[in-house]
Design a binder for these strands. Structure first.
Lengths: 213, 213
DNA sequence: TGTTGTGAAAACCTTCACAGCG
DNA sequence: CGCTGTGAAGGTTTTCACAACA
């Protein structure tokens, strides 16, 4: 029974689609239907649901409500998880705007920035603090998850500061590989790398077409 | 010989680190040194360099300049690649700010938005157009790569529009799985999913610690 | 019939371990 | 000696294919 990051990722995608089709009135669906909606193969979906211990019926398929509940039980902390955002620049603000209101269970409750113009203001609904306040606020709100949206040359230093004050998961937007203790999870969202990847494959496809001609 | 997305991703990381150490005056390095700097294992690095056909010497290691050139030869189009950005909201602007000046070879040359207040302005150095202008501009600039930063409910429609006008790679920030022809590469950067992933593992670690206690 | 649940196979990716060499 | 390059092994993830069932 292996709950790998990939499984988590797909479960997260499933549940978004399930919420949509629930709105549309669907109460049951088959693996191949969910496959169609998510771009994951039906076999993969059945495997994933087996992994989290959810069963369907051959005649009716999977019950949407039950599956949503089971996924939530897996992914969410019932008490909710508070999230800190370090770096309230363009990217940080985009993350707040993108995120707030989307998931109730996971909320960005505090922003931190070195820019005095931002400190003690409420930006897009998120209260901002000076970096000095970090230890105090993290402790006060029991924050275990942080989003790092600071310039690359500061990411490592800030990351260690976060870890020192109890953070156990970091979503890192800086183009630096962080060195942190192994009990801390890091997820790198590297926009440059992502763009280079698609640029490469877009070019590849174009070259193939040329070769075939 | 398999050039998979994972290899591309690591090459991209290698070259960033190589640029840094080149600045610091390093002219050669061993696989284990690059491993230390990137968090990738030395064996993996040697395998990757084998894949792109780059050789080092047992005594001197790898020549930094040559390796940088070889990676560039693989990843970059020598003519450069123009990139379009669809959706110049918070996220779109963050992407421009994050990206501009970072890679010369890959440049965001045009932004598109439905908001008339943005049309025909230059935002963070990027010229913005109305959505109507999409076909014309894509064609004019020979754009094959696009960044999609529009609301989820519009992503699919816009994606097909992009494909229809020649785009072959899409970096998708919308929380929707795009259905596009198989000759188009899509890379999903799903911030919600990423955050849920680290939140899950942060919680996991906390629970394990509790169980051990 | 058409579906789920799943052992087994296949595909893919990473690591090991060592020959070869300066 | 310590490194690279690489065949082979090991591990992980995905897919196949089919029994069981409504």
């Amino acid at each position: 029974m292996g709950i790998t990051p990939k499984v988590i990722e797909r479960l997260s995608v499933y549940r978004r689609v399930l919420a949509e089709i629930w709105q549309d009135g669907a109460r049951n669906l088959f693996s191949h239907q969910l496959a169609e909606l998510t771009g994951v193969t039906a076999a993969q979906i059945r495997r994933d649901l087996m992994t989290i211990g959810f069963s369907g019926s051959p005649s009716r398929g999977y019950e949407v409500a039950g599956l949503r509940a089971k996924i939530a039980e897996f992914l969410d902390d019932p008490a909710g998880q508070a999230v800190a955002l370090i770096g309230v620049g363009h990217l940080g603000q985009a993350v707040i705007a993108f995120f707030n209101g989307r998931r109730r269970n996971l909320q960005i409750v505090a922003g931190f920035d070195v820019n005095p113009a931002k400190v003690d203001r409420v930006i897009l609904g998120c209260r901002c603090y000076a970096m000095d306040a970090l230890p105090e606020v993290l402790e006060r709100d029991g924050i275990k998850v942080a989003i790092l949206a600071v310039p690359g040359d500061q990411a490592q230093r800030v990351a260690l500061q976060l870890v020192r004050h109890g953070v156990r998961g970091i979503l890192n937007f800086a183009p630096e590989r962080l060195r942190v203790p192994e009990y801390v999870s890091v997820e790198n969202v590297d926009i440059t790398v992502a763009l280079e990847r698609i640029a490469f494959f877009a070019r590849q496809d174009a070259m193939q077409k040329e070769a075939v001609r």
